[in-house]
Amino acid sequence: MDIVVCIKRVPATDTAIKIAADGKSIDPTGVSFEMNAYDEFALEQARLLKEQLGEGTVTAITIGPKDAQKEMRSALARGADKAVLLTTDQWVYDGASTAQALAAWLQQNPAQIVLCGKQATDSDNNQLAANLAARLGMACVTEVSKLELADGVFTAERDIEGAREVVTCKTPTVISCNKGLNEPRPANLKSIMAAKKKPLEESPADLPAPAMEIVSLELPPQRAEGKIVGEGAAAVPALIELLRSEAKVI
């Protein structure tokens, strides 16, 4: 079974965002980057599937800057057998062109299972898995938080508004992974050493033009400074009054 895990290098979630001088990108000074949080669940799921099947190859792939070698090494230390880095200098923010480029790679390197994160925490697109699946004619289930494979059929569970959906799905398939799916195992010294010997292929990405152009990137309007209504239960009547007459929410 060939399993591919899509990984994106993104700014750490506790990063304070500053806008660069061009008004269209973030200022990277002082920003630390990491593997997208949801991709850790995808990577762990690939590892679990390989363990369940007793065979298979896990390939981690990313389209990103040369510096994403760090995230690829980390993927190799956490269960990937090989890694592919398709390099670009551009910020990859558009799902359609990313999906096109990944689809082209997957056509040359077919996989039975493609695992993604549900969402990249930079562009917050939440679209790659379904977009990719459409282009490859593969099945797809998104935002999966429970997954079982039996007799070549997946049973996946996902949260929907106010309920959970149980979906069955054939292979080949693309799954986007949500928190709760598994508990990612961290790397250890031994796996980090072993990762240094695993293959990391690097080549320039063949990215088509994005389906959208960035006009501007702005910080959100600051919320007006709020007020402390008071202390303890004694402040409740004043709060109720403000919610009624000022905020008009009750």
Binding site: T15, I19, S123, A209, I214, V215, L217, E218, L219, P220
Partner: peptide
Amino acid sequence: VFAGKATMTVKAT
């Protein structure tokens, strides 16, 4: 984008 830490305006191409 960036979990609401910024707002992006885009034009579809």
